[in-house]
Design a protein around this nucleic acid. Structure first.
Length: 490
RNA sequence: GGGCAGGUGGCCGAGCGGUCAAAGGCAACAGACUGUAAAUCUGUCGACGAAAGUCUACGGGGGUUCAAAUCCCUCCCUGCCCA
């Protein structure tokens, strides 16, 4: 017996729209297959995609079956939802590599979430085989352009005369609808979840499924009569609507219009074949886009965003958002989150909520080991030593030092330059790239924003010689409070 | 195709012959205060230079002038109006 996922999603503030108010009841009684799609526009997923993954995992843990789709087929087209301009197309090789990349992320996070294995499918498997004629005839027939034009994703681009929307992207929604239909047919998938921008695509899928079922189930009946399947389907759909309203004389009326009682029963059984659920757009109270920093997206793969950087992203979440994000992204129970919030409100400086958030999320994305390292690094860099002077870095052994600055960008430095008097610190600053020019480096020194081995440098003519190398090899440059660069003398 | 209005630093936007590396705002960066917050305050914000200063920059190219972001020519681009 499945758990009450929908109820859980509700208290977590993650239900924006559902296609059917009865969905919650059904989810409690029956195990359904649920899917969510992921766009292979890069070789990894970012925080913006994490919600889909976590929610899929929640469904699976509640006793449903999760299906994650990599959009290897739809990626050829590009989803116009939420995009203001036409996207550039990716090559088949890129898409293929990207799909493999995101599949790695998906299975890793599923494992870390304790949700077991995710069923991973690439929609290129069926979309690329689809013939145009077949598609237009069997799928396109079920949509009117009038209706498609009214969908938000298309409408906003139609109103924007500068960018417009190509026929390619306009057709996107039909492909996603087809995906849902395909999954329904082959895996009995009955539900699709996504962000609120996916609502139009999801309902298109639900509509397609309902309409095609009508066609398929009554096709046999239509053969014995001289009625075209889609005509019968229209009647069936009317019947389905009537069922929802339950007026007996209306049912009689529909029956008289040429649908048999047997067919009516089939229709009734399928009147609610597929469901959709969306969660709200995730926004931060400070107006920043969730999951974005000045440097771009926060990624879920270590080669793009280090575990430490991911940890830091959540540590730095504004107070006002910490509780909300704990609800969204962690599996902590309601009571525990509320307790954390209470403690956080009492002593905000301790950042208990952010710490819990950062810890849970780093663990979910990168696992226990990486989380511990990120926590240690944070403690060493911000735990007091960094502020009070050199004790922090110079006292560390080499392995720990390297672990700390592993995240930082680094570069080689010719050892010879540090002989005798040594090299001008300003030059090293500019070379590191942390400061863009010598002028900028100079200003940083004047303003007190330049540190060597965690000691503030205030002398413009400061020279560095080999005596200042940590462990005979390293120089750690710090800009402001948070940015580091490591020179390795060779 | 014709008419008009424009193109200035990451963005918005003033300047309309010298005092312009270019007002003001936003963003960004650093410092102080804090909690690795927020708010606030201070400073910085083209390159090189310790500095004086030098160089490169106001859509591209060419010109006038002692002097051009500012005037002229030309090309490119954008918006609006007419066809």
């Amino acid at each position: 017996m499945p758990g009450d996922v929908l109820g859980e999603l509700k208290w977590r503030g993650l239900v924006h729209q559902v296609t059917d108010p009865q969905l919650g009841e059904r989810l409690k009684k029956e195990s359904l297959a649920v899917y969510c799609g992921f766009d292979p526009s890069a070789d990894s997923l970012h925080l913006g995609n994490l919600m889909g993954l976590i929610n899929l995992a929640r469904f699976q843990k509640a006793g449903h079956k999760a299906i994650a789709i990599a959009g290897g087929g739809t990626g050829f087209i590009g989803d116009p939802s939420g995009k203001s301009a036409e996207r550039s197309l990716l090559t088949a090789e890129q898409l293929d590599a990207n799909c493999r990349g995101i599949q790695e992320v998906i299975s890793r996070i599923f494992r870390n979430a304790g949700a077991g294995e995710a069923r991973l499918i690439n929609n290129a498997d069926w979309l690329c085989k689809l013939s145009l004629i077949e598609f237009l005839r069997d799928t396109g027939k079920h949509f009117t352009v009038n209706h498609m034009v009214a969908k938000d994703s298309v409408k906003s681009r139609m109103d924007d005369r500068e960018h417009g929307i190509s026929f390619t992207e306009f057709s996107y929604m039909l492909l996603q609808a087809y995906d849902f239909w395909h999954l329904f047919k082959t895996f009995g998938c009955r539900m699709q979840i996504g962000g609120s921008d996916q609502w139009g695509n999801i309902t298109a899928g639900c509509d397609l499924i309902r309409r095609r079922i009508f066609v398929d189930t009554i096709q046999a009946a239509s053969k014995s009569r001289s009625v075209l399947p889609h005509e019968l389907a229209e009647k069936a759909e009317k019947a389905a609507k009537v069922i929802e309203n339950y007026t007996s004389n209306q049912i009689d009326k529909v029956l008289k219009e040429g649908i048999t009682q047997g067919e009516f029963k089939v229709v009734a059984a399928f009147s609610q074949p597929a469901y959709g659920l969306t969660w709200p757009l995730l926004v931060r109270s400070d107006g920043k886009k969730f999951g974005k920093t000045e440097d771009g997206a926060v990624w879920l793969s270590a080669h793009r965003t280090s575990p430490y950087a991911l940890y830091q992203y959540f540590i730095n979440v504004p107070d006002a958002d910490a509780g909300t994000m704990l609800r969204w992204f962690t599996e902590l129970p309601q009571a525990e989150i509320e307790a954390l919030e209470a403690r956080h409100a009492a002593e905000p400086a301790k950042r208990e909520a952010q710490r819990a958030l950062a810890r849970e999320l780093t663990r979910l994305v990168h696992g226990e080991d990486e989380t511990r390292k990120a926590e240690q690094a944070a403690a060493a860099l911000f735990g007091g030593g960094a502020k009070d002077g050199d004790a922090g870095l110079a006292g560390l052994d080499e392995a720990t030092l390297l672990e700390l600055v592993k995240e930082a960008p680094n570069g080689p430095l010719a050892k010879a330059r540090l002989n005798g008097e040594g090299a001008l610190f300003i030059d090293l600053m500019a070379e590191s790239g942390l400061w863009k020019s010598k002028g900028e480096a100079k200003r940083a020194i004047q303003q007190g924003g330049a540190n060597l081995n965690n000691v503030r440098v205030s002398d413009l003519g400061k020279k560095v010689n080999s005596g200042e190398l940590l462990h005979g090899k390293y120089l750690v440059l710090r800009k402001g409070k948070k940015e580091y660069f490591l020179f390795k003398a060779e």
